[in-house]
Amino acid sequence: MYHDSYRKVEAVRLPAEFRFEESEVFVRRDPKTGDVILSRKPESWDGLFELHGKDPIPDDFMGPADRRQPSCDRDPFEDRDVKDGNL
């Protein structure tokens, strides 16, 4: 595991049988167990749009507390060499 406390990032090498074909994945934490979950990023959002209107959305979904997020003042490219196209 790689840990950079200055940038507050970690990197984990996955065993071959758990590797993703995609270059990006979603990362989320299970609110009950605290487990970190990696999942493939879908190629399109069509499946999500198909769900629209099929089930009622709870009144407290994405309430003000959920939308309140701290600002991110860091440069997203600070550790990348963008002038050479290496992201």
Rank of each mutant, 00 (worst) to 15 (best):
T33F: 02
P70Y: 00
H3N: 08
D46Q: 13
R40P: 12
P58I: 02
D59N: 13
P76H: 00
P56C: 03
D59A: 12
I37Y: 03
R74A: 04
K54W: 02
L51S: 15
P70M: 00
M1V: 01
D73V: 02
N86K: 12
G85C: 00
K8S: 14
E78C: 00
E10A: 10
L38W: 07
F61Q: 10
E21R: 12
R80Y: 12
S44R: 09
Y6L: 15
E22W: 01
F18W: 06
R67P: 02
D79G: 06
V9D: 08
N86P: 07
Y6R: 14
V12M: 10
R13Y: 13
K54D: 00
E10K: 15
M1K: 02
S39T: 07
P70I: 00
L48W: 10
D84F: 11
E50R: 06
R68E: 14
F61N: 10
S5D: 09
P58R: 03
Y2V: 14
M62N: 05
P70D: 01
S23W: 05
V82T: 00
V36S: 05
E50P: 09
E17C: 15
S5F: 15
E17L: 13
S39A: 01
P56T: 01
L51E: 14
P42I: 10
P70C: 03
K41A: 12
D81I: 02
M62G: 09
P76L: 05
E22S: 11
E24A: 12
M62W: 05
V82S: 00
C72Q: 11
D46I: 13
L87S: 12
C72G: 08
L48Y: 11
P15L: 13
S71A: 05
R68V: 14
S23M: 06
R13E: 14
K54G: 02
V25P: 03
G85Q: 01
L51G: 08
G47A: 01
A16W: 06
K32D: 12
H52F: 09
R74G: 00
P42Y: 02
V82N: 06
A11P: 07
H3D: 09
E43P: 01
E43H: 05
V9A: 12
P31G: 08
G34T: 02
P64L: 05
R29C: 04
F49Q: 03
E21I: 15
V36Y: 03
P58G: 03
V25W: 01
F20M: 01
D4K: 05
G34C: 04
D66T: 04
R40F: 10
P64D: 08
D66C: 04
D46E: 15
M1C: 09
P31D: 10
D81E: 05
P15Y: 07
G85H: 03
P42G: 06
L38F: 07
L51Y: 09
R40A: 15
C72R: 03
K54R: 04
A11H: 04
D46L: 09
V12K: 08
V82F: 04
F18L: 10
N86W: 09
M62D: 11
F26D: 10
V25Q: 03
D35G: 10
C72D: 12
P15N: 09
L48P: 13
P42Q: 08
H52N: 14
P70F: 01
R80M: 14
D75L: 05
H3Y: 15
T33Q: 05
E50K: 08
K41W: 11
G47F: 04
I57L: 10
